[in-house]
Nucleic acid binder design. Structure first.
Lengths: 339, 339
DNA sequence: CTGAAAGCGCTTACAG
DNA sequence: CTGAAAGCGCTTACAG
């Protein structure tokens, strides 16, 4: 079933496709098409329910009005919520979103970038994986805007929107210390990426500033690829292996979820026996008994900023990278009350 | 920055674009291109890192290798998890996903369908809203496959993949009854859509079969558009208005989440004072104290089936609609233990 | 065994 | 004030 083309309209109106194109693209005035002809074309177009073929238009103009979005995992609450915000915001500007998940895997990320590229997206929003520096540099050479999300590469000049991960983790660590916990562990992901490094550094600084003992043994790094069971097993092993551990900070929402599950299967009382805080908020954290203290990222604000940065670049490319660092909020709940 | 085109390769190889196209599309044998020429072209293509422009290809062939996915809300755990499964499955067949959320709003859904259409997606996966029957019929006339998700229209012949909502709700209701709860309420969404109707009907049948009192007052229907606060306020009002209510079934995951929050803010003991079960599973339900009994949808299976149905139709269109009804699983947890 | 040519549906520089 | 023509990058029926 063929669609209505500009030719069909031209034929019915008795004018050339050129004229139709001008009118339909709002260039009637500029091109000084007569009011009559203009009206007639408009009428026919709406009657036939003409929809321009975006493929043809894209091929000709080089613009597809599509944004490529690369997240770590669309099933993760943080990324899914963010995707929703960005979808809404992009829609306001007439853009649609083509998405893919990397699973934090560099090869998958590269493949995704390739695909987005030859689908001619107008811009990219990417959650980079490790070793993706060169690919990002290459993408920039493409002259299509790229906005990094959640993390960035310190040595690559690029647009990005992130939160102050150092501060978020520092605040969480300080809070636990101020609450009277004496020996606090951190469970994080095996990753040298800046966001994880900042979280670890921020937390470490807090321990130091509060003069709490903090040895390497109190840091547990787990590979992203572990499955549900293994995460739980590793976390339990860690928690039970540190003598006198009385609190723990989980560096991501899924680690927090696995952590809660692990602690409960150990039969420990969250808060009293072991203080808990996690990065990222989640319905589960809010409604858990006891409710879990967390460092919440301002998801709506992040999403809006990303699209804003991208639209700016799409409309008026600038030389200077836009780099936005938002503040996360420490939400204190029951899991960090010792007694 | 221009990409490498088939012409560039043709020029370098000293052959015509036609020959390049044949070779790169694996038709060298079929078109009896000599081994030499074929090898040469391949080599040049990989050296130049040639990527076919999908827009041009799509314009010519009418195939974009893109699937349009319309969910209710990508931020909802059920749809996000499903999207992830479908993304992975579609990827295996070389398809990418263009998505959008309807918010269960018919106008948004129509707009989305339009956009997906003029972006020339090859097939549609749609979570229909109410009053979308005609639009679905029109889409079918387009000769592009459409697979309905989560719900369908009884009077529209179409492909779909859903779960047995009636049975799921019936089982949940029966379970609560068997546990000894005597007066059970249901909180659902104001909607005549089949999935909500089936859930309500299934639950009602369970009450009847167990000879439990069940009046209209025990049914609370809430509009999808309510905000967080209003959902909680309405649920609290409902729970406190029914005399002797001793259990409640929430017909969707977000209602279950609001429900838990509401019950807790009332200070009631879940399980003992009020039995609770919800449709859909969620990390929160699993890890809540007490853990929440639920009707879990087989998300992986649903996603796989959807893509399978779609791929079948894409490759060998058939007249007969494929209609798949999967079984949800009742997961019994502590929230439905009276004492 | 290989190529010239048409055409997918648009936009736009150019001509009149 | 309007149109003929070229071209975006492919694929493919046709010709030789």
């Amino acid at each position: 079933m063929k669609g209505i083309s500009i030719k069909d309209i031209a034929k019915q109106a008795g004018v050339s496709p050129t004229t139709v194109s001008f009118v339909l693209n709002g260039k009637a005035k500029e091109k000084r098409i007569s009011e009559q002809v203009s009206k007639k074309i408009q009428k026919i177009a709406t009657r036939l329910k003409y929809k321009p073929n975006q493929l043809a238009r894209g091929l000709r103009t080089g613009k597809t009005k599509t944004i490529g979005l690369m997240v770590e995992d669309i099933a993760n609450n943080f990324f899914a919520s963010l995707a929703k915000v960005m979808e809404d915001e992009a829609d306001k500007h007439g853009y649609k979103v083509l998405y893919g998940s990397t699973e934090d895997n560099t090869e998958k990320a590269r493949g995704l970038l390739e695909v987005l590229k030859y689908r001619q997206v107008d811009g990219y929003i990417v959650t980079p994986t490790k070793n993706l520096e060169k690919d990002i540099e290459l993408l920039k050479a493409t002259a299509k805007p790229v906005v990094l999300l959640d993390r960035y590469f310190p040595h690559v000049s690029s647009h990005y929107v992130v939160v102050d991960n150092y501060r978020g983790a520092y605040n969480a660590g300080s809070h636990l210390a101020a609450q009277g916990y004496k020996k606090i562990g951190i469970v994080t992901i095996t990753s040298d990426q800046i966001q994880m490094k900042d979280r670890l550094d921020g937390f470490t600084a807090a321990m130091k500033d509060h003069h709490l003992p903090f040895s390497k043994a109190q840091i547990k790094k787990l590979p992203f690829e572990l499955d549900h069971e293994s995460f739980n097993a590793e976390i339990k092993k860690f928690l039970t292996s540190i003598k006198d551990l009385d609190a723990v900070f989980f560096a991501t929402n899924y680690l927090g979820i696995y952590g809660i599950e692990s602690i409960r299967s150990l039969g420990w009382q969250i808060g009293k026996q072991i203080g808990v805080a996690s990065f990222d908020d989640h319905d589960l954290f809010r409604l858990h008994s006891p409710a879990i203290t967390c460092v919440a990222q301002p998801i709506t604000e992040i999403g809006r900023n990303i699209i804003e940065v991208l639209m700016k670049e799409l409309n008026h490319p600038s030389a200077a990278p836009q780099q936005i660092v938002l503040e996360p909020a420490l939400i204190v709940r029951e899991s960090s009350i010792p007694l």
